[in-house]
Nucleic acid binder design. Structure first.
Length: 270
DNA sequence: TCCTATGTTGTATG
DNA sequence: ACATACAACATAGG
């Protein structure tokens, strides 16, 4: 599920556990999500530690615990975090469970494209510091986007929007949403956009990110909240969708290896 | 059986 | 060295 806003939504699901001691850690030792870390070290370090704080950046989450412990989680395609009763019995796809007095904090991911990372030290791990500046930060300028598009001149703009080194947190549905808002055809070579179009792309990127965080990321509900029907979001998943702006039929096709949906009535190739 | 799914990465090729 | 394209990862559901 997870792009920028969904990641922040899931991060907050563990909020009830902040400031609380971790009584024990339950692990699915053979799960692929632990490929880049040692789950036994996680158990040793986190048992008895206090979960202190959390942050989200791009599609990554970082949880800090006492004892200079840092737990990174990427949700992959199907990962999710939940807070369950303290006597929760882990199921097959629950890879990491932090059991506290009042609750169990669960990371589940049936498809296992997600990753857990673990670091012990006084400061956050390098990979966290290396995440590109957020699209809502001052560093995400029209100039930076322009330079990036020039370098990727022959790549379809849709594929370029998925590149985390410049568009951190943008995923498949957000990329489609952004291009639809900016009225840009997803197959346009990145280098073919003029200054006006790049400005529109930059603006739409920030707008979609900010609104998604407001609607999805800030929601305090047990279920994910979908953006309103005025967005492309609710119309892009199956064939036969209609453009919410023009009423014209939407088109779906694979671009850059990912299913892409757009409105030919407002997103022209030239 | 075949295809799809809100992601990333390693590898081959130009 | 850099840009680009795509298979591979693992699983369930239509």
């Amino acid at each position: 599920m997870p792009e920028l806003a969904e990641v922040d939504y899931f991060r907050k699901r563990w909020n009830p556990g902040l400031g609380q001691k971790i009584e024990c850690v339950l692990l699915h030792l053979k799960a692929g999500v632990f490929k880049t870390c040692d789950p036994r070290l996680i158990a040793r370090q986190l048992t008895g530690a206090t979960l202190l704080s959390s942050e989200a950046a791009a599609k990554q989450m970082l949880f800090r615990a006492s004892g200079e412990a840092w737990l990174g989680i990427h949700l992959g395609m199907t990962g999710e975090l939940t807070s369950q009763p303290a006597d929760y019995e882990p199921r097959k796809r629950d890879h990491l469970v932090l059991v506290q007095r009042g609750r169990a904090l669960v990371f589940a991911d049936f498809r296992m494209f997600g990753r857990v990372q673990f670091h012990v030290g006084p400061t956050a791990p390098d990979w966290w510091a290396d995440i590109a500046p957020a699209v809502l930060s001052k560093a995400f300028t029209v100039e930076a986007v322009t330079a990036f598009l020039r370098r990727r001149a022959r790549t379809p703009i849709k594929a370029v929007l998925l590149m985390q080194e410049r568009f951190p947190g943008i995923g498949n549905w957000m990329a489609d949403e952004i291009l639809w808002r900016a009225a840009l055809h997803p197959k346009r070579p990145a280098g073919s956009l003029n200054a006006t179009e790049i400005a529109a792309l930059h603006r739409a990127t920030r707008w979609v990110a900010a609104q998604a965080l407001k609607i999805i990321g800030a929601a305090q509900t047990p279920d994910l909240v979908d953006p309103p029907k005025t967005w492309l979001f609710g119309h892009r998943w199956g064939n036969g969708g209609k453009c919410p702006k023009t009423g014209a039929p939407l088109v779906r096709e694979t671009i850059g290896g990912r299913t892409t949906c757009w409105s030919p009535a407002r997103q022209k190739l030239s």
